[in-house]
Design a protein around this nucleic acid. Structure first.
Lengths: 145, 145
DNA sequence: GTCAATGTATCGCGTTACGATACAAATGCC
DNA sequence: GGCATTTGTATCGTAACGCGATACATTGAC
């Protein structure tokens, strides 16, 4: 992979390194593209799907606070607020009082959100299995996998 | 993973399935977030970096046509046109005549684009090695990896 | 030479994430 | 218990970006 160890000043990348990075990026873009077209075909935006998935996929519970979602979705707090607003008008999620902290808000799925997420997640699971090994190969940045 | 085989009508996903999908998505978001902050810190947008990388990472050559880029970046043709326009004003890429097809355009890196890409790609390579196994584990959708 | 197919470019638009800002509740300190 | 600091959520204006619709040039088939 043309790397020494883990120093700050790296030696130049080889053509193969660039190709591997590009392949990896392409794999991600392709998956996200599949996801986008799939979810839009079901009437929701990619952001909505990610929101629903983050809620249902939260370890141990089925809801999350705005701050937690900001971390999971890697967005700013107020971007999540807006996203939740939008999803709420679509009847995909709802807000509820936090049991112990009156500042926080519990964001949780509506039955409709649950239904949509179920359908979409199944399609994503299938696609991931389809990509499966191909995706894993992308992770070998020296192109030898 | 709670799957039968590969039929169209899937059985419902388990909590673990949802968690795995959410983890996978989180991993992607995290990587893209790292990428965005890194490249912006060097004065380019994420789209610019992806464009440069697609050019330099093209197997066998160091340039690509607009159509090829549209496929690699998973964008519409005209979105790529606009992206190339923007990158061109930043002196990151340039257009050149296609040798055999007068309709096509060769998009290639400028020396400046080459420099920027080299620096940024090294950082991405390092980050990927850092995430390395963690990312691979995300790919096991049943959470057992 | 005509015509469909291909490749690139332009324009206007809607969405979305952001920074700046504001407000409410909780926490720590004395 | 009062008060400052921190934490959590929300609002507003803005800029970037990808897209659909559209236009134009070149190629290739016949």
């Amino acid at each position: 992979m043309a790397v020494r160890s883990d120093q700050g000043k790296p030696e130049p990348l080889t053509k193969l390194d660039f190709e591997a990075l590009a392949r990896f990026r392409f794999g991600i873009r392709r998956y996200l593209r599949f996801s986008e077209e799939t979810v839009r075909g079901h009437g929701v935006t990619p952001q909505h799907y990610q929101l629903l998935l983050a809620l249902k996929g939260f370890p141990g519970r089925e809801w999350a606070t705005v701050s937690e979602l900001a971390e999971l979705l890697q967005l700013r707090h107020h971007s999540v607020v807006e996203l939740v607003n939008r999803a709420q008008t679509q009847d995909l999620v709802e807000r509820a009082a936090h049991p112990t902290d009156a500042r926080s808000v519990r964001v949780l799925l509506t039955p409709e959100g649950e239904r949509v997420l179920g359908r979409l997640s199944a399609l994503h699971r299938d696609e991931l299995r389809r990509m499966g090994d191909g995706f894993a190969a992308l992770l070998a940045p020296d192109g030898t996998a």
